[in-house]
Amino acid sequence: MIRDITLGQYYPGNSVIHRLDARTKIIATLLYIIELFIVNNFWGFLIAGAALAAVIALSRVPARFIFRGLTAVFLIIAFTVILNLFMVDGRVLWQWKFLKITYEGIWRAAFMGVRLVLLIIGTSMMTLTTKPVELTDGLEKLMSPLNKIGVPSHEIALMMTIALRFIPTLMEETDKIIKAQQARGADFESGNLFQRAAKLIPILIPLFISSFRIAQELALAMEARCYHGGKGRTRMNEIHFHRGDAIAAVLMVIYLAVIIASRFITFNPF
């Protein structure tokens, strides 16, 4: 289960999408997310879904790999859908005591569910097709104008590199600690919310200690490899804008226009 999380994972490849400059992909993803919130009807999602499908096809990342990432966040999606299903007032279709499902609720739940799925798949396309180092390099370059007002763009990018590197390590560590405490009779499944929170202490403390140990050892290893900040550092793969990035920019503008236009489609079959 823990290994199934594709968030932040990279799928090696050499497709047109892989070859785009990381900055293009970051901006495109940001735009895509904003556009998902501009959308106000299913026509917009249809367009967004078609655009996403095109990107997936071009990237040659197997669909199976992309959807595996969804199973890991299934709970969040299910929670959102259920919450919307029962919480919206309107024309009642079904009622049992205080629980009721309304016509508007179903519409809203489906709407939010689709939005969330498109959001997760869209953002994971960015990490799947961009090496973590390129991603953080891209962020560093995009943020570099902010250096002037004191934003440490190199340090922020390095922190992200390290975070992405150690997410899987810490997940495995968590898994091990949970099992070890279960073997000592710890029960994480019963009790009310507060009792359960208190039961997390035997997991959280060892996890903190592990993180500190990792940080300490990693800092030594980085120093031993001559790390001394961003000054004078070079990159194995310098990122550059190419013709593909220009084409991508044009497509993004067209897509933005179409999404905005979709708000005005009034035909609603539902």
């Binding site: 091990k176 073997a183 000592r184 009779g185 710890a186 403390i205 060892p206 200690i209 592990s210």
Partner: peptide, 25 residues
């Protein structure tokens, strides 16, 4: 069951409290 590198699961303030975690459960 004692896992590999079991010292990484220690979490209490004192040795006695940590050893008592299992029996208490």
């Amino acid at each position: 069951l004692v896992f590999q590198y079991p010292e990484y699961q220690l979490f209490e303030e004192t040795v006695a409290k940590d050893i008592a975690f299992g029996p208490k459960n």
